[in-house]
Computed example of a mutant assay.
Amino acid sequence: MDRDELEKHLQLEHQICFALYGAAHAFTRAYKPLLDPLGLTYPQYIAMMALWERDTATVKALGEMLGLDSGTLSPLLKRLEQAGLISRKRSLEDERQVLITLTDRGRDLKKDAVGVMQAIGQATGCGFDELAAIRDTLKNLSARLNDTQN
C-alpha cells in the first residue's frame, strides 16, 4: 500500500478501536435503565454476576475475574455492602485476604437480573448464537492484545 492508501485507513470510521468504543458506550446506555431499578451500576452488576457464579470470592480473585484493580473495586464493593448485597470479612486462614460473600438479598437479586440479560439480548437485535460469536471474537481479540503486551 502506498502512503495515500494508508492515510485513508487512518480515518476514524475505519478504526476498530472507535467502533468498540462506540459499542461500549451504547451498551452502557442500554444497561442503565435496566439496572437502575435493581439499584446497580454496570460495574456493580458485573461484580454481582461474578459472585452469582461463585457466591464467595477473595477481593483479589474478584478483581482478576473482572479486570479491575483494588482502587476501583474497593469503593464498588463498599457500595454493594452498604446496599446489603454482599458482606466483606477477613479470612480466618489468611488475614491479608478479604472474602466477599453474597447476602441472601444479593442472591435473590439474581432472579431479577435474568430480565436484564433478556432485555439486552432483545435490544441488540441479535440471536443467541450471533451474540455468542461476537463475544468469542472479542475475547480472542482481547487475548491477542494482552499477549502482545506481555
Results as ranks from 00 to 15, higher is better:
Leu66Ala: 03
Gly127Ile: 00
Arg54Lys: 15
Gln11His: 12
Ser74Arg: 11
Glu13Ile: 09
Tyr42Ala: 04
Met1His: 10
Ile86Thr: 05
Gly22Trp: 13
Asp55Met: 08
His9Met: 15
Leu73Gly: 01
Met48Trp: 00
Ala133Ser: 08
Leu68Gly: 02
Pro37Val: 02
Leu38Arg: 04
Arg79Ser: 11
Tyr21Ile: 08
Ser91Pro: 03
Arg54Cys: 13
Gly67His: 03
Leu138Lys: 02
Ile86Ala: 00
Leu6Val: 12
Ile100Trp: 00
Thr72His: 12
Ala123Tyr: 02
Asp136Ser: 11
Gly127Glu: 07
Lys89Phe: 04
Leu62Pro: 00
Leu80His: 01
Glu95Gln: 10
Phe27Glu: 08
Lys78Leu: 06
Ala123Leu: 05
Gln82Thr: 08
Leu109Val: 06
Lys110Gln: 12
Arg79Leu: 12
Ala24Gln: 12
Cys126Asn: 06
Phe128Ile: 10
Met65Ala: 14
Asp112Ala: 15
Asp112Ile: 03
Asp2His: 12
Thr56His: 11
Val98Pro: 00
Met49Lys: 10
Pro43Ser: 02
Ile120Ser: 02
Ser91Cys: 07
Thr41Asn: 00
Asp108Thr: 08
Asn140Lys: 15
Phe128Gln: 13
Leu68Val: 05
Leu38Trp: 03
Glu93Thr: 12
Ala26Thr: 12
Asn150Arg: 12
Val114Gly: 02
Met65Arg: 10
Leu40Gly: 01
Glu64Met: 07
Arg54Trp: 09
Asp36Thr: 14
Gly106Asp: 01
Asp36Gln: 13
Lys139Cys: 08
Leu138Ile: 08
Glu130Lys: 07
Arg135Gln: 11
Ala50Asn: 02
Asn140Leu: 14
Ala23Thr: 11
Arg3Cys: 09
Gly71Trp: 04
Arg29Phe: 09
Ala57Val: 06
Asn146Ser: 14
Leu20Gly: 05
Arg90Val: 05
Ala132Gln: 09
Gly84Pro: 03
Gly125Ile: 01
Pro75Met: 01
Leu68Ser: 06
Phe128Tyr: 13
Arg107Phe: 01
Asp94Tyr: 04
Leu12Ser: 12
Thr58Met: 04
Asp104Arg: 13
Ala19Ile: 07
Gln11Asp: 15
Ser74Glu: 11
Pro43Ile: 01
Glu81Gly: 05
Ala133Phe: 05
Lys89Glu: 14
Asp112Gly: 08
Leu20Gln: 14
Asp129Pro: 00
Asp69Leu: 06
Arg54Val: 07
Arg135Met: 08
Thr56Tyr: 06
Cys17Ile: 15
His9Gly: 15
Ile16Ala: 14
Pro37Ala: 03
Asn150Lys: 12
Glu81Tyr: 00
Lys89Pro: 00
Thr58Cys: 04
Val98Gly: 00
Lys139Glu: 14
Ala113Asp: 05
Lys78Ser: 09
Arg54Phe: 10
Lys60Ser: 12
Tyr45Glu: 04
Asp112Pro: 01
Val59Ala: 12
Thr41Ile: 00
Phe27Met: 11
Gln118Val: 14
Arg79Trp: 05
Ile86Asn: 00
Ser70Glu: 15
Asp94Met: 01
Gly121Val: 02
Asp36Ala: 15
Asp4Asn: 10
Leu10Gly: 10
Arg107Met: 05
Asp36Val: 14
Leu35Pro: 01
Ala61Gln: 15
Arg3Gln: 14
Ser74Thr: 15
Asn140Gly: 13
Lys32Gln: 15
Leu77Tyr: 00
Leu102Met: 03
Glu95Leu: 09
Leu68Tyr: 10
Ala24Ser: 15
Ala133Glu: 09
Gln97Thr: 05
Pro75Trp: 02
Asp36Leu: 13
Leu141Ser: 11
Gly39Thr: 09
Lys78Tyr: 06
Ala119Lys: 06
